[in-house]
Amino acid sequence: MHLVNPGFFLKIMPPYFPLHDELVFVSGVFEILLGGLLLIPRFSHPAAWGIMILLIAVFPANIYLYQHQEILPAPPIIHLLRLPLQGVFILWAYWHTRTASGNGQVHGLEVDASREKLD
């Protein structure tokens, strides 16, 4: 929606951020790119880290929206619940960075546990 309806995202940009149009566009491109990379096992781990960074980077916009609820008329509880929901999304992305244990796979790749380390 960053690319389709940037007006909404421009409204929730804190005024202390520069280059509002550019930041909305770049965040939308990164959402699409990182979301697509999550589907490719080889790239899912770095994509998940990128998503966590992106979610942290856009969090000030969520705080700004909470502070200026007139931007998006909704019950105050909705605006309040958006804030911890961002944490849930970060934890969900973090789940994709974790190494599988006990099943012989690391990020979708087979691991041969019998191989010795080279010293």
Rank of each mutant, 00 (worst) to 15 (best):
I63C: 05
I63R: 07
H96Q: 10
G7P: 07
P15F: 14
G108A: 07
F9R: 00
F8D: 01
I56E: 03
S27G: 03
F30E: 05
M13W: 00
I53M: 12
F43G: 00
S27F: 14
P15Q: 12
I78W: 07
L83W: 01
L39P: 00
M13N: 05
H107I: 05
G28C: 06
D119C: 10
L38K: 02
A74V: 04
V58G: 06
T97S: 13
I56K: 10
G108T: 10
G50C: 02
L80G: 07
T99G: 01
I71C: 04
K117Y: 10
A93G: 12
I12W: 00
A100W: 10
M13D: 00
I53W: 05
W92G: 02
I53A: 15
M52A: 14
L23A: 12
E70L: 11
V29E: 06
R115P: 08
L72D: 10
L72C: 08
L118P: 07
T99K: 15
P46N: 02
A93L: 05
Q67G: 01
F43N: 01
E116P: 03
K11E: 15
I71H: 06
E110S: 13
Y16S: 11
K11F: 09
H96D: 09
S27E: 02
L19V: 09
P46M: 02
Y16V: 04
L33V: 15
P76V: 05
F89W: 13
L10W: 07
V26Y: 13
I90P: 04
D21K: 08
G36Q: 12
K117H: 14
A47G: 01
H2Q: 07
I53C: 09
W49N: 04
L38T: 05
L3I: 13
P6A: 04
L19H: 13
L3G: 08
I90A: 09
A113C: 00
V58R: 03
R98P: 03
T99Q: 12
G36C: 15
T99W: 14
L83M: 08
Q86I: 07
A113I: 11
L54K: 10
E110V: 13
F43C: 03
I12K: 01
P84L: 09
L81C: 13
M52R: 05
A57E: 06
P14F: 07
P75Q: 09
